[in-house]
């Protein structure tokens, strides 16, 4: 039920943003269409996304954005430094990391966050195992290193989704 409701609210917001009309006809029609779409998509496999129904999750989601941005900027400088360095200190490779997140949405967001951060790129997600391509894989304990960087993201995502 909450799944349908959140999809409905999402669709309705899109409808209003696209049409930008506030007469009754338009709003009623939009509500009907959004309801129909939300209802017909209800069976697509996905965990519950109670994002819009619980305020504390919304707050965590909003807090996640600056954190992610911070990581992206920091990684940007790191990559820039590697690229501009005369000896080009890169050591590309793929590392494997496990996530403790259960929700598919959280996992997808995690994968996307990793991809968004310069220097790392999630290549594949198989159940709870992530395959991540890094511009510089540290020589000592590469997997533990990756795991550490993922922990911050995971903490936020768990609070948002689980």
């Amino acid at each position: 039920m909450s799944k349908i409701l959140s999809a409905f609210v999402f669709c309705m917001l899109v409808w209003i943003a696209v049409t930008w009309a506030f007469d009754t006809t338009s709003l009623v029609l939009g509500a009907v269409l959004a309801g129909a779409i939300a209802f017909s998509l209800r069976n697509l496999e996905l965990d519950e996304v109670p994002l819009l129904l619980m305020p504390q999750r919304l707050v965590w989601a909003l807090a996640y954005i600056p954190v992610l941005l911070l990581y992206v900027i920091r990684a940007n400088f790191d990559v820039a430094w590697r690229v501009l360095h005369p000896r080009l200190p890169i050591r590309p490779g793929i590392v494997r990391a496990k996530t403790t997140l259960k929700s598919p949405s959280a996992r997808v967001l995690l994968a996307n966050s990793i991809t968004l951060t310069p220097g790392t790129l999630s290549v594949d997600v198989l159940d709870d195992v992530f395959y991540i391509h890094r511009i510089h894989v540290p020589e000592a304990a590469p997997e533990a290193d990756m795991q550490r960087s993922m922990d911050t993201f995971e903490g936020f995502l768990r609070r948002i989704f689980e």
């Binding site: 669709c11 939300a38 997600v125």
Partner: peptide
């Protein structure tokens, strides 16, 4: 893969409406 499926699920409503 799960990434495509989840993102599709998010976007489908938007695309249709």
């Amino acid at each position: 893969s799960i990434v495509v499926r989840v993102v599709t699920r998010w976007l489908l409503g938007l695309i249709l409406i």
